[in-house]
Simulated assay, not measured.
Amino acid sequence: MPDYFHGYTVVGLVAVVGVLFVCAAFAAGRLLRPVVPTPEKMLTYECGVDPVGEGWAHTQVRYYVYAFLYVVFAVDSVFLFPWSTVFAAPGYGATTLAEMFVFLGFLAVGLLYAYKKGVLEWT
């Protein structure tokens, strides 16, 4: 029984050492850095251009929606490539084909929902 938990002990020890290392690095950074706040340091930096107006800007929600849709289809492609290698293996053809149609059906329903809500229109 002790040999079984030895692997977990090593993983736990490495995790604790990693957390301690990160805490030590943050503490050293806090102790060693100079803290001299000036008005210039408190300004918002924008590519060397002096800031004009407020520091807050409104962002259109549609940009986030397009980013979310990109992530959905990126995940889809991540699942399609391994599926294509397993699909060619003997004995897995019909099962993996049915599973992939279910997966693509869920994605199609999500895309149809986004289309019906008008999310895909750029106006």
Score class of each variant (00 low, 15 high):
residue 100 M to Y: 05
residue 14 V to P: 01
residue 10 V to S: 11
residue 54 E to S: 14
residue 87 F to P: 06
residue 76 D to M: 11
residue 107 L to A: 06
residue 82 P to R: 09
residue 36 V to R: 14
residue 33 R to Q: 15
residue 23 C to Y: 09
residue 32 L to N: 10
residue 75 V to S: 03
residue 5 F to W: 11
residue 71 V to H: 04
residue 54 E to C: 13
residue 25 A to D: 15
residue 116 K to R: 15
residue 107 L to N: 07
residue 58 H to N: 10
residue 101 F to Q: 04
residue 9 T to Y: 13
residue 90 P to K: 11
residue 114 A to E: 00
residue 16 V to A: 14
residue 66 Y to V: 00
residue 120 L to D: 05
residue 123 T to N: 15
residue 109 V to I: 03
residue 9 T to D: 12
residue 78 V to Q: 09
residue 92 Y to W: 08
residue 68 F to W: 02
residue 83 W to M: 04
residue 15 A to Q: 04
residue 53 G to L: 04
residue 73 F to Q: 00
residue 39 P to S: 03
residue 35 V to G: 02
residue 79 F to N: 02
residue 44 T to Q: 13
residue 34 P to I: 08
residue 28 A to F: 09
residue 45 Y to V: 11
residue 123 T to R: 15
residue 67 A to S: 06
residue 50 D to Y: 12
residue 104 L to P: 01
residue 38 T to V: 05
residue 1 M to T: 12
residue 47 C to H: 15
residue 17 V to S: 04
residue 45 Y to K: 10
residue 30 R to K: 08
residue 23 C to S: 10
residue 15 A to C: 11
residue 11 V to H: 07
residue 115 Y to I: 02
residue 45 Y to I: 14
residue 36 V to E: 12
residue 44 T to Y: 08
residue 18 G to L: 06
residue 121 E to F: 12
residue 9 T to S: 08
residue 101 F to S: 01
residue 84 S to H: 12
residue 109 V to T: 02
residue 29 G to T: 07
residue 80 L to V: 14
residue 35 V to L: 05
residue 70 Y to C: 07
residue 33 R to T: 10
residue 21 F to E: 07
residue 88 A to H: 11
residue 21 F to S: 12
residue 106 F to G: 11
residue 90 P to W: 13
residue 37 P to Q: 06
residue 65 V to W: 02
residue 101 F to H: 07
residue 17 V to A: 13
residue 99 E to N: 14
residue 38 T to Q: 07
residue 48 G to T: 03
residue 53 G to A: 00
residue 96 T to K: 08
residue 110 G to D: 00
residue 92 Y to L: 11
residue 48 G to R: 03
residue 22 V to S: 10
residue 7 G to W: 04
residue 5 F to H: 12
residue 33 R to W: 08
residue 41 K to W: 08
residue 50 D to W: 09
residue 117 K to D: 02
residue 80 L to Y: 15
residue 37 P to R: 03
residue 92 Y to I: 06
residue 86 V to I: 15
residue 7 G to I: 03
residue 66 Y to S: 00
residue 86 V to S: 13
residue 57 A to D: 08
residue 12 G to N: 05
residue 103 F to I: 01
residue 90 P to Q: 11
residue 70 Y to F: 14
residue 123 T to M: 14
residue 44 T to A: 12
residue 98 A to K: 12
residue 49 V to E: 15
residue 103 F to K: 00
residue 109 V to L: 00
residue 94 A to K: 05
residue 34 P to V: 10
residue 74 A to S: 13
residue 24 A to D: 05
residue 107 L to E: 06
residue 18 G to Y: 03
residue 66 Y to G: 00
residue 87 F to S: 10
residue 82 P to E: 13
residue 95 T to Y: 10
residue 87 F to T: 10
residue 17 V to Q: 05
residue 95 T to P: 06
residue 82 P to A: 10
residue 54 E to V: 09
residue 61 V to Y: 09
residue 17 V to M: 07
residue 53 G to W: 05
residue 51 P to Q: 15
residue 7 G to S: 04
residue 39 P to R: 07
residue 36 V to C: 07
residue 3 D to N: 12
residue 6 H to R: 13
residue 46 E to Y: 02
residue 88 A to T: 15
residue 64 Y to K: 00
residue 86 V to F: 14
residue 97 L to T: 09
residue 102 V to Q: 04
